[in-house]
Write a protein that binds this DNA or RNA. Structure first.
Length: 192
DNA sequence: TATTGGATGAACT
DNA sequence: GTTCATCCAATAA
């Protein structure tokens, strides 16, 4: 166990970490919810930002496991990842959707940041959840076991389903997207 | 130096 | 279903 957060060993391969993250509660500055959708990425496959090697953008994915990797997508969205494996490997888990926490103050803050009322749309997508949680490049390469981050273990069992990843054109065959079966907060429905 | 293509989301038809 | 806003790393030249 190199990095034990919410009972998860982040030095394990990304797909293994990814399925264990479903049902875990993620808070950033006290705001967040239960993780219901994630995707695993690894330097060995071409859909990963690490496939090409170390760059200014992806350097945190080559650092220690159990840290954040935040990147900008399509020029306007931020996306949050958790780093896996060991230093120098290049692997991580993209956090794609949360079931928003029921704390009233937290919900109000997320709604304000998103400019929306509808609970379903607060955190159902990687860009949306980063906006709701106030995550930007300022939160890149930070340890996940210290503020503003907080990870709490699953409170109950969840049914985890695996399927193909969303929005990629390479390595489309890998079933490295993991969702909570039946969740209403997914960015897209599960497909096997 | 120029072009291209995204680990997206919102607003359209 | 399609379009588009808008940034930047990778690739081509």
């Amino acid at each position: 166990m190199v990095m034990d957060l919410a009972g998860i060993d982040f030095s394990a391969p990304a797909p293994q970490v990814a399925q264990q993250l479903i049902g875990v509660k993620l808070l950033v500055g006290g705001v967040g919810g239960r993780i219901v959708e994630v995707e695993a990425y690894d330097a060995s496959e071409p859909a990963s930002h690490c496939y090409i090697g170390l760059t200014e953008r992806n350097f945190s994915m080559f650092g220690p496991p159990g840290r954040s990797y935040v990147y900008r997508s399509h020029g306007l969205h931020w996306c949050l990842n958790f780093v896996c494996r060991e230093v120098g490997h290049g692997a991580g888990v993209l956090i794609r959707a949360l079931e928003p926490l029921s704390d009233p103050a937290a919900l109000a803050l997320m709604r304000e940041r998103r400019g929306l009322d509808e609970l379903r749309l607060l955190c159902s997508g990687p860009g949306r959840l980063a906006q709701a949680l106030g995550v930007t490049r300022a939160q890149n390469n930070l340890p996940l076991d210290a503020p503003p981050f907080l990870l709490l273990p699953r409170e109950r069992d969840v049914a985890v389903l695996a399927g193909p990843r969303i929005g990629i054109s390479k390595a489309v065959e890998l079933p490295w997207r993991f969702v909570e079966g039946g969740s209403r907060f997914l960015s897209k429905p599960h497909r096997a």
